[in-house]
Simulated scan of single mutants.
Amino acid sequence: MTTNSISSADSSWTGMVPVDDTALAVTDTGGPGIPLIYLNGQFATQGYWRRVLADLGPEFRHITYDERARGKKSKLSADYSFEACVRDVDAVLAARDVDRALVVGWSYGAFVGAHWASRNPDRAIGAVLVDGAQPYDWLDEAMEQRIRKLFKRLGWITPLLRPTGLTPRMTAAQQAECNIELGKVSRARELGPVLDDITVPTRYVLASGSSFGSRGDEQELIRASLDAVCAGNPHLRISAKVASNHDHILRKDFHAVAEAVREVAAFDHSGH
């Protein structure tokens, strides 16, 4: 059962979608257009997509949501795993009575979107993956310790920002474990087969330079792994590489993301 609020003016819907031991805050603009479901960065919120939504406009149906313990309203959970995030895509789509959708994911959400598209070839219209879902072995023991120290160091400030929804209602240890698990999901032997199995049109939009917590040219080395991936799977292509960095791409280069969505959506109309 969902709790909700419906606007008769534009058929938009906002409400809570129960899943497992929690509930997720969801917004659905409604309308007859191709459904787009947006998958957030690891600790980000649905508000990050507002410029992309505005650029794409009412031609599309936009479904956004905050993951477990993210944002102001989504509830806590005993499970913050990557697999739980993939399951949540199905839960949100089912609650909104959507069978087929185009997934748009940024950063962590790009990994979730790649997995969902790979597992659901009959339900995925396509995918747009924004500076994420790149197979690269960046996690080692030293990196694990670096991640744990980083989140422990930030532990004093994140609780102060939680009322704003800008930081998750998770402990520093939980946030670190999520990031470490992402490193394992990112490994070439883990992610490579997932990307190889994608059979729907998929476009990457890549940032340039660094991201929060990265050093030197780490991010550029990770992005370079996509050359071989795209060469091996004709369904995957790099749509654009933009000037903004990882953290600012949805704010500064939202138009490139919107254009990639339009490119993928055109396949659903033309079949080619």
Score class of each variant (00 low, 15 high):
residue 1 M to R: 14
residue 1 M to G: 14
residue 3 T to N: 15
residue 3 T to K: 13
residue 4 N to P: 02
residue 5 S to N: 12
residue 6 I to C: 09
residue 6 I to R: 13
residue 7 S to H: 12
residue 8 S to V: 06
residue 11 S to Q: 14
residue 12 S to G: 11
residue 13 W to G: 00
residue 15 G to I: 07
residue 18 P to T: 04
residue 18 P to H: 05
residue 19 V to Q: 05
residue 21 D to W: 09
residue 22 T to H: 10
residue 27 T to G: 06
residue 27 T to S: 14
residue 34 I to F: 05
residue 39 L to G: 02
residue 41 G to M: 06
residue 44 A to E: 07
residue 45 T to W: 02
residue 46 Q to Y: 00
residue 50 R to W: 11
residue 50 R to G: 08
residue 52 V to F: 05
residue 54 A to Q: 13
residue 58 P to T: 07
residue 63 I to A: 04
residue 64 T to P: 07
residue 70 R to N: 13
residue 76 L to P: 06
residue 79 D to M: 13
residue 80 Y to R: 04
residue 82 F to L: 01
residue 86 V to S: 00
residue 86 V to N: 02
residue 86 V to Y: 00
residue 86 V to G: 00
residue 87 R to H: 13
residue 90 D to K: 00
residue 95 A to W: 07
residue 97 D to A: 14
residue 99 D to E: 14
residue 101 A to N: 04
residue 103 V to Y: 02
residue 103 V to R: 01
residue 104 V to I: 12
residue 104 V to Q: 04
residue 105 G to S: 08
residue 106 W to E: 07
residue 112 V to K: 01
residue 113 G to W: 00
residue 113 G to C: 01
residue 113 G to A: 03
residue 115 H to L: 00
residue 116 W to S: 01
residue 118 S to I: 01
residue 119 R to P: 10
residue 128 V to N: 05
residue 128 V to A: 04
residue 130 V to P: 01
residue 131 D to I: 06
residue 131 D to H: 00
residue 134 Q to W: 01
residue 136 Y to W: 12
residue 139 L to A: 04
residue 140 D to C: 10
residue 149 K to E: 15
residue 150 L to F: 11
residue 152 K to N: 15
residue 152 K to A: 15
residue 155 G to P: 08
residue 155 G to N: 07
residue 165 G to F: 10
residue 167 T to N: 05
residue 170 M to A: 08
residue 172 A to E: 10
residue 172 A to I: 09
residue 175 Q to H: 02
residue 175 Q to N: 09
residue 177 E to S: 11
residue 180 I to Q: 04
residue 182 L to F: 07
residue 182 L to R: 03
residue 183 G to F: 09
residue 184 K to M: 12
residue 189 R to S: 14
residue 190 E to T: 13
residue 190 E to R: 08
residue 191 L to G: 03
residue 192 G to T: 11
residue 193 P to W: 00
residue 193 P to F: 00
residue 197 D to S: 13
residue 198 I to L: 02
residue 199 T to K: 14
residue 200 V to M: 07
residue 203 R to K: 11
residue 208 S to A: 06
residue 211 S to Y: 15
residue 215 R to H: 14
residue 218 E to P: 04
residue 219 Q to P: 12
residue 219 Q to W: 13
residue 221 L to V: 10
residue 223 R to N: 13
residue 225 S to I: 10
residue 228 A to W: 03
residue 231 A to V: 05
residue 232 G to D: 10
residue 233 N to M: 11
residue 240 A to V: 08
residue 241 K to E: 14
residue 243 A to Y: 11
residue 244 S to E: 08
residue 245 N to V: 08
residue 245 N to S: 15
residue 254 F to Q: 03
residue 256 A to L: 01
residue 256 A to V: 02
residue 257 V to L: 10
residue 261 V to I: 15
residue 261 V to E: 06
residue 263 E to A: 14
residue 265 A to T: 06
residue 268 D to P: 00
residue 270 S to F: 06
residue 270 S to E: 11
residue 272 H to A: 14
